[in-house]
Computed example of a mutant assay.
Amino acid sequence: MVLGATGQIGRVAVGALARDGWEVTALSRSGGRDAGWPGDVRAVACDREDDAALSAAVGDGCDVLVDMVAFGEGHARQLVSLAGRVGSAVVISSMSVYEDDKGRNFDTQAAEPDGFPEYPVPVTEEQRTVRPGDTSYITRKAALERELLAAGDRLPVTLLRAGAVHGPYCRTPRELYFVKRNLDGRRRRVLAYGGASRFHPASVHNIAELIRLAAPRPGTRVLNAVDDEAPTVAEIGAAIDAVMGVETGDVLLDGPPAAGVGDTPWSVPVPVVCDMAAARRELGYRPVVEYAETLPETVAFIEERLAGRDWREAYPKMFGNYGDLFDYAAEDAWLAARRA
């Protein structure tokens, strides 16, 4: 059973599991289907916030429950309550639960001066994590992990700490930054930190492969879930240009953004790069795609969604998370002052 089946990762994971021979029930609030799923996938409407509805959907039980939409202690306890009927679980977490040795994390980056975490490169699953709580996305994911790991003897669980997820159906696609600029005819872009920022991406296809491999291997474990490579922001921009058939010149800032100019969804002062050795060792994992290979479908999906719409209407969550990413007037003024 796949919970959150019509979301960004769920759509691909359902297909991967079905093609691997599993009998798959796709659970979502809408009960919808993806056109790419095999015909024998069973789609069922189920709101995971309704304990009774989820319990009824599980019925007599399943071998594996894959949960794309779990957050916090409540969802963890909900899953553990099904332990007698569920053989094992695979649950999506986030690499954002990590904190550095000074206690800095993604919650402190905006709240404190010099608050951005400095992780080792690469980050392994042994890195310390934030204190569990219910105050933010990060603390809720940490609480989810704590509760599930504590109950691992009753419900074996594979927790996948996903990176910057990319692919179609994403509500906050970082690629939007370059796609929209190219569509708007912007042929010069400013990149902070010398364009060298690295924030580890994670393809929905590679995450689905990790799910496929974990499903028949019950166990309680935590694994990073990212692509094999972590390209720089400049390399990502160039790769998207190549897909869209345009040429763009980069203006590189040595340091942070200048009053917002030069900022992107990938712009970080130090690398955020994760290690995948544990997944290789425990699951025999190998990536099924590289970042650049996935861009044509991602770009096409974003272009279609933007067609005839304001980007804030097309991607309201992106606007809520990042604010105005396309203040061209401020950028033009900055470039003019720099030329002068």
Score class of each variant (00 low, 15 high):
P173A: 00
H205L: 08
D263W: 13
H205M: 09
P38K: 12
M318D: 12
C46K: 09
S55Y: 11
D332F: 04
L306Y: 14
L191Q: 05
T139C: 00
G152Y: 07
D20Y: 14
A26E: 01
D250T: 09
L3R: 12
T232R: 13
A277E: 15
A143R: 07
R11E: 05
C62G: 02
L144D: 06
P168A: 03
A111I: 05
L283D: 12
R131N: 06
V157A: 06
T6C: 04
E331Y: 09
S55I: 11
V64A: 09
A279D: 01
S197A: 10
P265F: 04
G4R: 02
R174I: 12
D263C: 11
V288P: 08
T124K: 06
G308M: 00
L148P: 08
G31T: 04
P216F: 01
G103T: 04
F301R: 13
N105P: 00
V14L: 02
E112Q: 08
I9R: 11
T25E: 10
N105H: 02
D63I: 02
D134F: 08
R217E: 13
D34F: 07
R186V: 12
S30G: 13
D324F: 03
D51E: 15
R104K: 06
R281A: 13
L183K: 05
M1N: 10
P168C: 03
L335N: 00
A142G: 03
M68Q: 15
V246L: 07
R77Y: 13
